[in-house]
Every structure is written in C-alpha cells, then in structure tokens.
Amino acid sequence: MTLEYARKTLSGPFDLTKFEVRHVPGALKLSQEMGWPYRSEDWEFAAAVGQGLVLMHNSAVIGTAMWWNYGEAYASAGMIIVTASAQGGGFGSQLFDGLLAATGGRNLLLNSTDEGLTLYKRRGFAAWGAVFQHQGPLDVAVVPDDRGDIRPAALSDLVAIQAFDERAFGMPRRAMVAALADVGDVAVIDHGGRIAGYAIARRFGRGYVIGPVAAESVHDAQRLILAQLSGLKGQFVRIDIHAEHGWGDWLGSLGLEQVGQATAMVKGQRPVSAGPARMFALANQSFG
C-alpha cells in the first residue's frame, strides 16, 4: 500500500509532533493493539527519561517512536509502533526518519522484531546479536546466595552504580540509571566498599522486570538475579538477556521460559565494555 493510498484511506490531517504526556493514553492503546504489556505508568516513565515523536491523525495517536540520549555519542531507540490500519503506507518510515534526524547522528542501538528488520537495514543498521525474552510466574521459592557480599543499595552507592553501568555498557547512562533506581529495588555486590555489580527489580508490564543486571561474571549476574527473585515469589517476572552469554537454560530452570527473541542492531559504532564489567540483562528492549 503506497503512502498516497494510505492517506486516502485515512482521510484528514496528519501531524508529526513531539511526544508529550498527553499522548500516553493513545500510545497505550497502540501498544495494547500490538499485544505489548505496557501500562500507562510504563509509557509515562519512558517519556520522562527519553523523548520521541508521535504521528497524529484526526487527533488520534496512530504512531510512536521514542529514543533515549546517552551522551554525545550514543542513544537507544524503541517503542516504534504504527497502528494496523496505517501499516504499509510509509508511516513507519516517516516516523523513523524523524527519529534518526532527532538523534543528531549519534551511534544508535535498538532491538528489532522480525517485522522491523527490513526498515532498519535500509537505514544502515547492522545486526550484532540477539536478546532473549524470558518470563513467567515465579512459582518456586528462590534461595539467595548466602556469601554475604550482596546487599540492598544505599543512596550513597548511586554514583558508583552509575560508573559501573558505564563500564559495563560502554556509554554514559547516569540519568537513566538514577531514574530506574528511583522506581525500583537495587541490589549490589559489595567487595570491601567496591561495587562489583548491580541489579534492579521494578514494576513493569504484567508484574516485575529484573534489569539492568551488570556484573563481572555470569555467576555474579546469576547471584544478583537470585537475590532479586527471592523477594518475588508468586509474581510474574520478566528478564531480557543478551543471548551471547548463553545462560537462558538457567532461567528456564527457574520457570522463566524463553518466549521471544529480538535482533540487537546498531547504526554506527557499538559501545565497548571496559574491564571485566558486562551487561547481562536489559532494563527493557527499548532502553537497553
């Protein structure tokens, strides 16, 4: 369907404008149409820590595209949706081209569904890996590691957590980490006053999401996840992990089965971790 045909089908004015809080109800309706579990609170949080575009038709939201700024060199993109009645009419390209212009030439990360791959490849994105979505009701009582080096974070830990996150992800996300810590429960690995990993559990979608999870080894990442899961028995839990680390079966053994997968893509240069710190689980597939 051409853009011209779509405009004839959806008659009336179209407006591509800045995403604002007043657009949340329309955006929520779009994500529900896609079967995504976002709540109004999840859209409000995403808008508060990021920015984006919304496509309006006759005062209704028919498309969204969001991005999050991580310094002068990097950004991530996501929550790119076009209503079913407008798909195939060029609206997705229009939204995404507007987002690319807004990011100012930054290296841009996103996690793509199969449906979005063609558009992103045409815009210069290259695949570099995969993200596995694990989720399910936590029906088992999880016993945390009793080594004694994992504890709840204090406000005074925030700067060290932000620094660890930057080493793990390879880009500065201080504002994002602070916002996530403000709405979630944070556990840290404390090696004699040195933060050696952290994990955040917060309300999201159908229940809780655990992420980001950053640590210096797969084992430490798993220990942090166990510490967070130990307080979530009976809750619905989601964790999105980088496939390259190869520990999805471990999550499955806890009842958190893999239910989906996305292609990790980058336009430009992928950020590089520093030292042993690595990012093992995402805040969500849009934020990274």
Rank of each mutant, 00 (worst) to 15 (best):
A86H: 13
A127R: 15
D139I: 11
D97H: 12
V82C: 09
A130S: 12
V131N: 09
A84C: 02
N111L: 07
R39S: 10
R123T: 02
L108P: 03
Q87A: 07
H134L: 09
E72K: 14
K29M: 06
L100G: 08
T118N: 13
V140G: 07
V142K: 08
P37S: 09
H23I: 03
P37C: 03
L30V: 08
E115Y: 09
I80N: 14
Y74I: 00
G129D: 10
A77Q: 06
D114I: 01
L28W: 07
S112V: 04
V21D: 13
A77P: 00
P144R: 04
F45E: 13
L110W: 09
D97M: 03
G78Y: 04
G98H: 08
F91L: 12
A86K: 09
G89H: 13
A130L: 07
A75G: 05
A46L: 15
L108K: 12
V142H: 07
D15K: 04
K18E: 15
V142E: 12
F132V: 10
V143K: 15
A48Y: 09
V21L: 08
N58I: 01
L95R: 08
V54H: 05
K29I: 04
G78L: 11
R123L: 10
M66L: 14
G26L: 00
S31Y: 01
V49R: 03
W67L: 01
T103E: 11
M66D: 00
T83S: 15
A77I: 06
A48T: 10
L109C: 06
G92V: 04
G88I: 13
L53R: 13
S40T: 12
V21F: 04
L138H: 11
T103G: 06
H134C: 14
P37F: 04
D97G: 04
D139E: 15
T113S: 15
T83P: 01
W67E: 00
T17A: 11
W36M: 06
H23M: 03
G105A: 03
Q51A: 13
L117S: 06
W36S: 03
L99D: 03
G89M: 13
G92H: 00
L28C: 05
A75Q: 07
R123A: 10
R122F: 04
V131A: 13
G35F: 00
Y70V: 06
A127D: 12
N58A: 07
V143A: 15
G52L: 10
D97A: 05
V142D: 10
Y70M: 03
L28T: 08
F19E: 01
D139Q: 14
V140S: 14
E44Q: 15
D42W: 00
D114V: 05
P37L: 04
M66V: 01
G116C: 10
S59C: 06
S112F: 00
W68F: 14
S85I: 02
V61E: 09
Q133Y: 03
I80F: 15
A77R: 05
A77S: 14
S40M: 13
